[in-house]
Design a binder for these strands. Structure first.
Lengths: 187, 187
DNA sequence: CCGAGATATATCGAACCGGGATATAGCCAC
DNA sequence: GTGGCTATATCCCGGTTCGATATATCTCGG
Protein backbone atom coordinates (compact mmCIF):
# COMPACT_ATOMS: atom_id res chain seq x y z
CA UNK A 1 0.00 0.00 0.00
CA UNK A 2 1.61 3.22 -1.11
CA UNK A 3 -0.63 5.57 0.87
CA UNK A 4 -1.95 4.51 4.23
CA UNK A 5 -4.73 7.07 4.39
CA UNK A 6 -7.22 7.21 1.53
CA UNK A 7 -8.57 10.58 0.53
CA UNK A 8 -12.31 11.03 1.10
CA UNK A 9 -13.04 10.88 -2.61
CA UNK A 10 -11.01 7.72 -3.01
CA UNK A 11 -12.92 6.12 -0.16
CA UNK A 12 -16.17 7.15 -1.80
CA UNK A 13 -15.13 5.61 -5.11
CA UNK A 14 -14.19 2.34 -3.47
CA UNK A 15 -17.45 2.27 -1.53
CA UNK A 16 -19.46 2.72 -4.71
CA UNK A 17 -17.40 0.22 -6.64
CA UNK A 18 -17.92 -2.28 -3.84
CA UNK A 19 -21.56 -2.42 -5.01
CA UNK A 20 -20.53 -3.17 -8.58
CA UNK A 21 -18.36 -1.87 -11.39
CA UNK A 22 -18.97 1.61 -12.73
CA UNK A 23 -17.53 4.37 -14.87
CA UNK A 24 -16.35 7.71 -13.51
CA UNK A 25 -19.42 9.29 -14.99
CA UNK A 26 -21.71 6.93 -13.12
CA UNK A 27 -19.84 7.48 -9.85
CA UNK A 28 -20.31 11.19 -10.21
CA UNK A 29 -24.01 10.73 -10.91
CA UNK A 30 -24.37 8.48 -7.90
CA UNK A 31 -22.78 11.10 -5.69
CA UNK A 32 -24.98 13.88 -7.06
CA UNK A 33 -28.32 12.18 -7.67
CA UNK A 34 -28.04 8.77 -6.07
CA UNK A 35 -28.15 7.35 -2.58
CA UNK A 36 -24.93 9.03 -1.61
CA UNK A 37 -25.89 12.59 -2.34
CA UNK A 38 -27.02 13.35 1.18
CA UNK A 39 -23.63 13.02 2.74
CA UNK A 40 -20.93 13.27 0.12
CA UNK A 41 -20.30 15.28 -2.94
CA UNK A 42 -17.64 14.94 -5.55
CA UNK A 43 -16.95 16.37 -8.96
CA UNK A 44 -15.25 15.07 -12.09
CA UNK A 45 -12.11 16.94 -11.22
CA UNK A 46 -11.72 14.89 -8.06
CA UNK A 47 -13.20 11.56 -9.13
CA UNK A 48 -11.12 10.94 -12.22
CA UNK A 49 -7.76 11.70 -10.56
CA UNK A 50 -8.83 9.61 -7.59
CA UNK A 51 -9.67 6.67 -9.85
CA UNK A 52 -6.30 7.03 -11.58
CA UNK A 53 -4.54 6.93 -8.21
CA UNK A 54 -6.58 3.93 -7.11
CA UNK A 55 -5.73 2.09 -10.34
CA UNK A 56 -2.10 2.97 -9.82
CA UNK A 57 -2.21 1.55 -6.30
CA UNK A 58 -3.86 -1.66 -7.49
CA UNK A 59 -7.11 -1.01 -5.64
CA UNK A 60 -9.17 -0.97 -8.83
CA UNK A 61 -8.80 -2.34 -12.34
CA UNK A 62 -9.91 -0.69 -15.54
CA UNK A 63 -11.56 -2.27 -18.53
CA UNK A 64 -12.05 -0.18 -21.64
CA UNK A 65 -15.03 -0.44 -23.93
CA UNK A 66 -14.68 1.38 -27.21
CA UNK A 67 -17.93 2.39 -28.81
CA UNK A 68 -17.47 3.96 -32.21
CA UNK A 69 -17.57 7.72 -32.03
CA UNK A 70 -18.15 8.01 -28.29
CA UNK A 71 -15.32 8.55 -25.82
CA UNK A 72 -13.83 5.33 -24.47
CA UNK A 73 -15.87 3.92 -21.60
CA UNK A 74 -13.49 3.15 -18.76
CA UNK A 75 -15.17 0.71 -16.46
CA UNK A 76 -13.64 0.40 -13.02
CA UNK A 77 -13.86 -2.64 -10.74
CA UNK A 78 -12.63 -3.00 -7.19
CA UNK A 79 -9.91 -5.56 -6.42
CA UNK A 80 -9.56 -7.60 -3.22
CA UNK A 81 -6.80 -5.18 -2.14
CA UNK A 82 -9.27 -2.38 -2.77
CA UNK A 83 -11.85 -4.03 -0.56
CA UNK A 84 -9.26 -4.37 2.18
CA UNK A 85 -8.28 -0.73 1.83
CA UNK A 86 -11.93 0.32 1.95
CA UNK A 87 -12.57 -1.66 5.12
CA UNK A 88 -9.40 -0.23 6.67
CA UNK A 89 -10.45 3.31 5.76
CA UNK A 90 -13.98 2.89 7.10
CA UNK A 91 -12.66 1.27 10.26
CA UNK A 92 -11.07 4.50 11.41
CA UNK A 93 -13.27 6.56 13.71
CA UNK A 94 -15.51 8.61 11.44
CA UNK A 95 -15.24 11.92 13.28
CA UNK A 96 -18.03 14.48 13.38
CA UNK A 97 -20.16 15.27 10.37
CA UNK A 98 -19.11 18.33 8.51
CA UNK A 99 -21.92 20.66 7.63
CA UNK A 100 -21.64 23.60 5.29
CA UNK A 101 -24.70 25.74 5.53
CA UNK A 102 -25.11 29.01 3.73
CA UNK A 103 -28.51 29.23 5.36
CA UNK A 104 -27.09 29.17 8.88
CA UNK A 105 -24.62 31.86 7.90
CA UNK A 106 -27.57 34.00 6.90
CA UNK A 107 -29.25 33.16 10.21
CA UNK A 108 -26.16 34.08 12.19
CA UNK A 109 -25.87 37.35 10.29
CA UNK A 110 -29.55 38.14 10.62
CA UNK A 111 -29.04 41.23 12.82
CA UNK A 112 -27.11 42.87 9.99
CA UNK A 113 -29.41 41.88 7.15
CA UNK A 114 -32.66 43.33 5.84
CA UNK A 115 -35.65 41.35 7.02
CA UNK A 116 -36.64 40.58 3.42
CA UNK A 117 -33.37 38.77 2.81
CA UNK A 118 -33.78 36.66 5.93
CA UNK A 119 -37.34 35.85 5.05
CA UNK A 120 -36.40 34.83 1.51
CA UNK A 121 -33.70 32.52 2.85
CA UNK A 122 -36.12 30.91 5.29
CA UNK A 123 -38.73 30.38 2.59
CA UNK A 124 -36.21 28.95 0.15
CA UNK A 125 -34.92 26.59 2.76
CA UNK A 126 -38.38 25.45 3.71
CA UNK A 127 -39.09 24.75 0.07
CA UNK A 128 -35.89 22.79 -0.40
CA UNK A 129 -36.43 20.72 2.72
CA UNK A 130 -39.99 19.91 1.74
CA UNK A 131 -38.96 18.87 -1.76
CA UNK A 132 -36.12 16.76 -0.46
CA UNK A 133 -38.34 14.97 2.01
CA UNK A 134 -40.93 14.25 -0.64
CA UNK A 135 -38.27 12.79 -2.85
CA UNK A 136 -36.96 10.62 -0.03
CA UNK A 137 -40.44 9.33 0.72
CA UNK A 138 -40.98 8.50 -2.93
CA UNK A 139 -37.81 6.46 -3.23
CA UNK A 140 -38.29 4.60 0.04
CA UNK A 141 -40.35 1.97 -1.75
CA UNK A 142 -37.80 1.40 -4.53
CA UNK A 143 -35.00 0.59 -2.16
CA UNK A 144 -36.85 -1.31 0.51
CA UNK A 145 -34.81 -4.37 -0.42
CA UNK A 146 -31.53 -2.65 0.45
CA UNK A 147 -31.76 -2.27 4.20
CA UNK A 148 -28.76 0.03 4.59
CA UNK A 149 -30.30 2.50 2.16
CA UNK A 150 -33.56 2.29 4.03
CA UNK A 151 -31.71 2.99 7.27
CA UNK A 152 -30.02 6.04 5.84
CA UNK A 153 -33.20 7.35 4.29
CA UNK A 154 -34.93 6.97 7.63
CA UNK A 155 -32.13 8.92 9.26
CA UNK A 156 -32.33 11.65 6.66
CA UNK A 157 -36.09 11.92 6.98
CA UNK A 158 -35.87 12.18 10.76
CA UNK A 159 -33.26 14.94 10.64
CA UNK A 160 -34.98 16.89 7.90
CA UNK A 161 -38.30 16.57 9.67
CA UNK A 162 -36.88 18.14 12.80
CA UNK A 163 -35.16 20.79 10.76
CA UNK A 164 -38.35 21.73 8.96
CA UNK A 165 -40.31 21.69 12.17
CA UNK A 166 -37.88 24.05 13.92
CA UNK A 167 -37.92 26.28 10.89
CA UNK A 168 -41.69 26.53 10.77
CA UNK A 169 -42.00 27.16 14.48
CA UNK A 170 -39.19 29.69 14.76
CA UNK A 171 -39.12 31.42 11.39
CA UNK A 172 -40.86 34.50 12.72
CA UNK A 173 -38.39 34.87 15.57
CA UNK A 174 -35.52 34.86 13.14
CA UNK A 175 -37.09 37.42 10.84
CA UNK A 176 -37.79 39.57 13.88
CA UNK A 177 -34.06 39.61 14.66
CA UNK A 178 -33.26 41.08 11.26
CA UNK A 179 -32.60 44.76 10.79
CA UNK A 180 -35.97 46.48 10.61
CA UNK A 181 -36.45 47.97 7.12
CA UNK A 182 -37.61 51.42 8.26
CA UNK A 183 -35.36 52.40 11.13
CA UNK A 184 -31.98 52.28 9.45
CA UNK A 185 -30.94 55.63 10.82
CA UNK A 186 -29.14 54.05 13.75
CA UNK A 187 -26.47 51.55 12.65
CA UNK B 1 -16.68 45.32 -7.88
CA UNK B 2 -14.08 43.13 -9.49
CA UNK B 3 -15.71 39.80 -8.69
CA UNK B 4 -19.48 39.57 -8.58
CA UNK B 5 -19.61 36.28 -6.66
CA UNK B 6 -17.74 36.02 -3.38
CA UNK B 7 -16.12 32.73 -2.50
CA UNK B 8 -17.59 30.99 0.55
CA UNK B 9 -14.53 31.78 2.64
CA UNK B 10 -14.65 35.44 1.64
CA UNK B 11 -18.29 35.59 2.62
CA UNK B 12 -17.47 34.00 5.94
CA UNK B 13 -14.72 36.54 6.60
CA UNK B 14 -17.00 39.44 5.83
CA UNK B 15 -19.74 38.00 8.04
CA UNK B 16 -17.35 37.69 10.95
CA UNK B 17 -15.86 41.13 10.38
CA UNK B 18 -19.36 42.57 10.31
CA UNK B 19 -19.46 41.81 14.05
CA UNK B 20 -16.23 43.71 14.65
CA UNK B 21 -12.65 43.90 13.52
CA UNK B 22 -10.45 40.86 13.85
CA UNK B 23 -7.17 39.30 12.82
CA UNK B 24 -6.89 36.31 10.52
CA UNK B 25 -5.95 34.22 13.50
CA UNK B 26 -9.12 35.18 15.32
CA UNK B 27 -11.28 34.50 12.27
CA UNK B 28 -9.83 31.04 12.03
CA UNK B 29 -10.48 30.42 15.72
CA UNK B 30 -14.04 31.62 15.36
CA UNK B 31 -14.63 29.20 12.51
CA UNK B 32 -13.11 26.29 14.40
CA UNK B 33 -14.12 26.88 18.01
CA UNK B 34 -16.63 29.69 17.90
CA UNK B 35 -20.25 30.15 16.96
CA UNK B 36 -19.60 29.42 13.33
CA UNK B 37 -18.05 26.02 13.68
CA UNK B 38 -21.27 24.11 13.17
CA UNK B 39 -21.78 25.15 9.62
CA UNK B 40 -18.56 26.41 8.12
CA UNK B 41 -14.96 25.50 8.30
CA UNK B 42 -11.95 27.34 7.06
CA UNK B 43 -8.22 27.09 7.46
CA UNK B 44 -5.33 29.53 7.38
CA UNK B 45 -4.56 28.51 3.82
CA UNK B 46 -7.93 29.82 2.73
CA UNK B 47 -8.53 32.68 5.18
CA UNK B 48 -5.36 34.67 4.60
CA UNK B 49 -5.59 34.65 0.80
CA UNK B 50 -9.27 35.52 1.06
CA UNK B 51 -8.49 38.48 3.32
CA UNK B 52 -5.83 39.64 0.87
CA UNK B 53 -8.33 39.50 -1.98
CA UNK B 54 -10.93 41.31 0.08
CA UNK B 55 -8.42 44.04 0.92
CA UNK B 56 -7.49 44.29 -2.72
CA UNK B 57 -11.15 44.71 -3.68
CA UNK B 58 -11.68 47.39 -1.06
CA UNK B 59 -14.07 45.31 1.01
CA UNK B 60 -11.84 45.39 4.08
CA UNK B 61 -9.08 47.62 5.38
CA UNK B 62 -6.00 46.53 7.27
CA UNK B 63 -4.40 48.19 10.24
CA UNK B 64 -1.06 46.90 11.47
CA UNK B 65 -0.02 46.74 15.10
CA UNK B 66 3.62 46.00 15.70
CA UNK B 67 4.39 44.42 19.02
CA UNK B 68 8.08 43.96 19.64
CA UNK B 69 9.20 40.44 18.85
CA UNK B 70 5.82 39.06 17.85
CA UNK B 71 4.67 38.89 14.23
CA UNK B 72 2.82 41.96 13.04
CA UNK B 73 -0.85 41.91 14.02
CA UNK B 74 -2.90 42.67 10.94
CA UNK B 75 -6.30 43.81 12.07
CA UNK B 76 -8.99 43.73 9.42
CA UNK B 77 -12.12 45.89 9.38
CA UNK B 78 -15.01 45.75 6.99
CA UNK B 79 -15.75 48.78 4.79
CA UNK B 80 -19.19 50.01 3.67
CA UNK B 81 -18.50 48.40 0.28
CA UNK B 82 -17.73 45.18 2.13
CA UNK B 83 -21.04 45.36 3.96
CA UNK B 84 -22.82 45.85 0.66
CA UNK B 85 -21.00 42.90 -0.88
CA UNK B 86 -21.84 40.75 2.14
CA UNK B 87 -25.51 41.60 1.94
CA UNK B 88 -25.49 40.93 -1.80
CA UNK B 89 -23.83 37.56 -1.27
CA UNK B 90 -26.21 36.53 1.51
CA UNK B 91 -29.19 37.68 -0.54
CA UNK B 92 -28.66 34.97 -3.09
CA UNK B 93 -30.72 31.83 -2.42
CA UNK B 94 -28.67 29.77 0.01
CA UNK B 95 -29.18 26.38 -1.62
CA UNK B 96 -29.27 23.14 0.30
CA UNK B 97 -26.92 22.41 3.15
CA UNK B 98 -23.92 20.39 2.26
CA UNK B 99 -23.25 17.54 4.59
CA UNK B 100 -20.12 15.46 4.59
CA UNK B 101 -20.59 12.42 6.72
CA UNK B 102 -18.04 9.69 7.03
CA UNK B 103 -20.44 8.00 9.40
CA UNK B 104 -23.21 7.74 6.83
CA UNK B 105 -20.74 6.30 4.36
CA UNK B 106 -20.03 3.58 6.89
CA UNK B 107 -23.77 3.06 7.34
CA UNK B 108 -24.34 2.82 3.60
CA UNK B 109 -21.49 0.33 3.30
CA UNK B 110 -22.64 -1.68 6.30
CA UNK B 111 -23.45 -4.84 4.29
CA UNK B 112 -19.82 -5.07 3.24
CA UNK B 113 -18.29 -4.30 6.62
CA UNK B 114 -17.60 -6.40 9.71
CA UNK B 115 -20.18 -5.83 12.41
CA UNK B 116 -17.51 -4.67 14.84
CA UNK B 117 -16.55 -1.80 12.55
CA UNK B 118 -20.15 -0.67 12.22
CA UNK B 119 -20.68 -0.90 15.95
CA UNK B 120 -17.53 1.12 16.66
CA UNK B 121 -18.68 3.82 14.24
CA UNK B 122 -22.10 3.99 15.87
CA UNK B 123 -20.61 4.24 19.35
CA UNK B 124 -18.12 6.89 18.33
CA UNK B 125 -20.84 8.92 16.73
CA UNK B 126 -23.08 8.65 19.72
CA UNK B 127 -20.24 9.86 21.90
CA UNK B 128 -19.49 12.81 19.63
CA UNK B 129 -23.13 13.85 19.40
CA UNK B 130 -23.57 13.67 23.15
CA UNK B 131 -20.45 15.74 23.77
CA UNK B 132 -21.46 18.30 21.21
CA UNK B 133 -24.91 18.70 22.67
CA UNK B 134 -23.53 19.11 26.16
CA UNK B 135 -21.22 21.80 24.93
CA UNK B 136 -24.07 23.59 23.18
CA UNK B 137 -26.20 23.47 26.30
CA UNK B 138 -23.35 24.88 28.36
CA UNK B 139 -22.80 27.87 26.09
CA UNK B 140 -26.48 28.69 25.71
CA UNK B 141 -26.35 30.87 28.80
CA UNK B 142 -23.30 32.86 27.68
CA UNK B 143 -24.85 33.96 24.43
CA UNK B 144 -28.41 34.52 25.52
CA UNK B 145 -28.00 38.21 24.69
CA UNK B 146 -27.24 37.48 21.03
CA UNK B 147 -30.56 36.21 19.76
CA UNK B 148 -29.27 34.97 16.42
CA UNK B 149 -26.73 32.75 18.17
CA UNK B 150 -29.46 31.46 20.44
CA UNK B 151 -31.58 30.68 17.40
CA UNK B 152 -28.79 28.74 15.74
CA UNK B 153 -27.91 26.86 18.90
CA UNK B 154 -31.54 25.88 19.27
CA UNK B 155 -31.54 24.66 15.71
CA UNK B 156 -28.39 22.65 16.24
CA UNK B 157 -29.69 21.12 19.45
CA UNK B 158 -32.94 20.10 17.79
CA UNK B 159 -31.16 18.43 14.87
CA UNK B 160 -28.58 16.70 17.02
CA UNK B 161 -31.26 15.52 19.40
CA UNK B 162 -33.16 13.84 16.60
CA UNK B 163 -29.97 12.41 15.22
CA UNK B 164 -28.99 10.92 18.55
CA UNK B 165 -32.47 9.61 19.12
CA UNK B 166 -32.58 7.83 15.76
CA UNK B 167 -29.15 6.43 16.42
CA UNK B 168 -30.07 5.01 19.79
CA UNK B 169 -33.30 3.50 18.54
CA UNK B 170 -31.90 2.03 15.34
CA UNK B 171 -28.30 1.20 16.15
CA UNK B 172 -29.03 -2.48 16.51
CA UNK B 173 -30.74 -2.65 13.14
CA UNK B 174 -27.71 -1.17 11.47
CA UNK B 175 -25.29 -3.52 13.17
CA UNK B 176 -27.54 -6.41 12.14
CA UNK B 177 -27.13 -5.40 8.49
CA UNK B 178 -23.36 -5.72 8.72
CA UNK B 179 -21.57 -8.80 7.47
CA UNK B 180 -21.84 -11.47 10.16
CA UNK B 181 -18.37 -12.24 11.52
CA UNK B 182 -18.61 -16.04 11.34
CA UNK B 183 -20.25 -16.82 8.02
CA UNK B 184 -17.80 -15.24 5.62
CA UNK B 185 -17.63 -18.31 3.39
CA UNK B 186 -20.27 -16.94 1.04
CA UNK B 187 -19.31 -13.52 -0.39
C1' DC C 1 -36.49 18.27 -41.35
C1' DC C 2 -33.23 21.17 -39.04
C1' DG C 3 -31.10 23.03 -35.31
C1' DA C 4 -31.17 23.43 -29.96
C1' DG C 5 -30.45 21.14 -26.22
C1' DA C 6 -29.86 17.03 -23.40
C1' DT C 7 -27.19 12.57 -22.52
C1' DA C 8 -23.14 9.96 -22.01
C1' DT C 9 -18.27 10.13 -21.36
C1' DA C 10 -13.63 11.69 -20.44
C1' DT C 11 -9.95 15.32 -20.17
C1' DC C 12 -7.73 19.75 -19.05
C1' DG C 13 -6.57 23.97 -16.68
C1' DA C 14 -6.91 27.78 -13.53
C1' DA C 15 -8.11 29.09 -9.49
C1' DC C 16 -9.13 27.83 -4.89
C1' DC C 17 -8.82 25.20 -0.53
C1' DG C 18 -6.89 22.15 3.41
C1' DG C 19 -3.49 20.81 6.37
C1' DG C 20 0.96 20.78 7.70
C1' DA C 21 5.53 22.93 8.18
C1' DT C 22 8.00 27.14 9.57
C1' DA C 23 9.26 31.29 12.31
C1' DT C 24 9.17 33.70 16.73
C1' DA C 25 8.61 35.00 21.47
C1' DG C 26 6.68 35.12 25.66
C1' DC C 27 4.34 32.00 29.30
C1' DC C 28 3.37 27.91 32.02
C1' DA C 29 4.24 23.42 33.91
C1' DC C 30 7.23 19.98 35.57
C1' DG D 1 15.45 25.24 31.90
C1' DT D 2 13.19 22.43 28.50
C1' DG D 3 9.33 21.23 26.25
C1' DG D 4 4.84 22.45 24.99
C1' DC D 5 1.08 25.89 24.37
C1' DT D 6 -0.68 30.53 22.66
C1' DA D 7 -0.65 34.07 19.44
C1' DT D 8 0.32 35.38 14.75
C1' DA D 9 1.35 35.18 9.91
C1' DT D 10 3.34 32.99 5.76
C1' DC D 11 4.49 29.38 2.43
C1' DC D 12 3.83 25.26 -0.05
C1' DC D 13 2.09 20.83 -1.95
C1' DG D 14 -1.25 18.19 -3.17
C1' DG D 15 -6.12 17.75 -3.55
C1' DT D 16 -10.59 19.89 -5.06
C1' DT D 17 -13.91 22.78 -7.51
C1' DC D 18 -15.83 24.42 -11.43
C1' DG D 19 -16.03 25.46 -15.97
C1' DA D 20 -14.54 24.66 -20.75
C1' DT D 21 -13.83 21.31 -24.47
C1' DA D 22 -14.65 17.29 -27.50
C1' DT D 23 -17.94 14.29 -29.74
C1' DA D 24 -21.74 11.15 -31.06
C1' DT D 25 -26.36 10.00 -30.49
C1' DC D 26 -31.09 11.08 -29.16
C1' DT D 27 -35.09 14.05 -28.50
C1' DC D 28 -38.01 17.85 -28.86
C1' DG D 29 -39.87 22.25 -30.64
C1' DG D 30 -40.77 24.73 -34.55
Amino acid sequence: MSTDTLSPVSTLCLAILQCGEATGYEIKKESVEGDYRYFVDASYGSIYPALARLANDGYVTVREETHPGRPIRKIYSITPEGTDALIAALSQPPGPDQRRSRFLLVAKSAPHLPAAVVKAAVDERRRLLTEEMEHLRRITADYSDEPSVAWIVGYGLACMGTSLDYLEKNADDLVAIAKPPLADAAE
